[in-house]
Amino acid sequence: MNNQPLLSIITPTLGKFSDYWLENLLKIEGSVQFVLVYPPNVKIKAIDDPRVTAIVSPYKGEMPQRFVGLLNAQGKYILALDDDDYVHPQVCSAVEKYFHRFPESWVLRLQKLNIDMKDEVRIKQAWEEIPDVDQLEICKKTPENPYPYNQGNFQGLLEVPIAPLDKNFDWRYLFWPFINRTDNNGYHFENFNNIVWRNDIIQQALPELSQATKVLGAVTWIPSSGFDRLSGLFVQANLFEKDAIIGHWMPKPEQIRYIDKDPALKPPRFHVISDVLLVKHFPKYGYLWNLVFSKLYGVPRTVGKVMKLKLGKTPQK
């Protein structure tokens, strides 16, 4: 593709993002495309920047908006970002260096810092310089020492393994769903957002992912379910290779600032629905069955939250 951008940053939005967030998004340097995906019947904000592509999804909801954004990503690499989270302005330089050094990697996992939405001082703090990817040593995961570092406490590029989807199903979930999972321990990940992906890997998975969402004939999309974990695990299951190293995790300081909200301010989402889609499409992977059963206990809680919203007792986002 001529003039192909290096990185596409995809953001589903209702158009309620702050001027400060937009100002900082547009400070990102280098070859970047910003894809803002709106639901139908929402006024699109006028943004005077040729790097911005504004799209209206045919359906409202997280899943269709994110999917439409991925379909329209022109960059060699993709980063999914919410419209209240921040990314380092020099991220493109780190991405370019990383994939030049590791062209076969699927992902570059950025270092993420969770910040309370009320902590404006930390949110607006100046970014520290990103470590030079070319100079970073490789922190390896070995069978003898599978978890060689505490969470986030490493100085080099930490190897990221594929999710261990071939784990056996824990039959205890059939009798007691509150058992703590252990198969999700380690440096693999489940979610899609805030991680830089190779676009060719994503485009390869999208047609099959689209088919997987068709559950009841005419019902093509499930707007109330979460696309983040569904897409992250779907891509890994689609090209699963046991114990494969699919990328690396950047060390501190952070390159992503994830704004954490009070759960009461978040809209209810039946994430277990999208988890069931994973099991439906990849029934042979015990890891996915463990995920579904471990999340079932949250369904009554989500139903209760929906009822409270309808009664006007809980403020919406």
Rank of each mutant, 00 (worst) to 15 (best):
residue 7 L to T: 00
residue 13 T to C: 14
residue 23 E to T: 05
residue 25 L to W: 09
residue 27 K to H: 09
residue 37 V to G: 12
residue 41 N to V: 02
residue 45 K to Y: 10
residue 53 T to C: 10
residue 56 V to C: 10
residue 60 K to F: 12
residue 62 E to M: 12
residue 63 M to H: 04
residue 63 M to I: 00
residue 65 Q to E: 12
residue 69 G to T: 01
residue 72 N to R: 15
residue 73 A to I: 02
residue 73 A to H: 02
residue 75 G to D: 00
residue 77 Y to S: 10
residue 77 Y to D: 07
residue 81 L to S: 05
residue 82 D to M: 09
residue 95 V to R: 01
residue 100 H to F: 11
residue 103 P to A: 02
residue 112 K to A: 11
residue 122 R to T: 12
residue 124 K to L: 14
residue 124 K to R: 15
residue 131 P to L: 09
residue 132 D to K: 11
residue 135 Q to G: 08
residue 137 E to G: 04
residue 139 C to P: 07
residue 139 C to D: 14
residue 140 K to E: 08
residue 144 E to K: 12
residue 150 N to M: 14
residue 152 G to H: 11
residue 153 N to M: 15
residue 160 V to K: 15
residue 160 V to L: 15
residue 161 P to C: 10
residue 163 A to K: 06
residue 164 P to S: 04
residue 165 L to I: 01
residue 167 K to G: 13
residue 171 W to G: 13
residue 174 L to P: 13
residue 175 F to N: 03
residue 176 W to E: 10
residue 180 N to G: 08
residue 180 N to K: 13
residue 182 T to G: 05
residue 182 T to H: 14
residue 184 N to Y: 12
residue 185 N to D: 08
residue 186 G to F: 12
residue 186 G to N: 05
residue 186 G to A: 09
residue 191 N to M: 05
residue 194 N to R: 05
residue 197 W to H: 08
residue 199 N to A: 14
residue 203 Q to M: 05
residue 204 Q to D: 08
residue 206 L to D: 01
residue 210 S to R: 11
residue 211 Q to M: 12
residue 212 A to S: 14
residue 213 T to K: 08
residue 223 P to M: 01
residue 225 S to W: 00
residue 225 S to V: 00
residue 226 G to A: 09
residue 230 L to S: 01
residue 231 S to M: 15
residue 234 F to S: 04
residue 248 H to A: 15
residue 251 P to M: 13
residue 252 K to C: 14
residue 253 P to S: 10
residue 258 Y to L: 10
residue 260 D to A: 14
residue 261 K to P: 06
residue 262 D to H: 09
residue 263 P to W: 03
residue 263 P to L: 01
residue 264 A to G: 06
residue 266 K to A: 07
residue 271 H to I: 00
residue 271 H to K: 06
residue 271 H to V: 00
residue 274 S to C: 00
residue 276 V to H: 05
residue 277 L to H: 06
residue 279 V to N: 05
residue 280 K to G: 06
residue 280 K to T: 03
residue 281 H to K: 15
residue 289 W to P: 07
residue 291 L to N: 04
residue 291 L to G: 01
residue 292 V to T: 00
residue 293 F to A: 04
residue 294 S to P: 06
residue 297 Y to K: 13
residue 309 L to H: 05
residue 311 L to C: 07
residue 312 G to C: 04
residue 312 G to A: 03
residue 312 G to N: 02
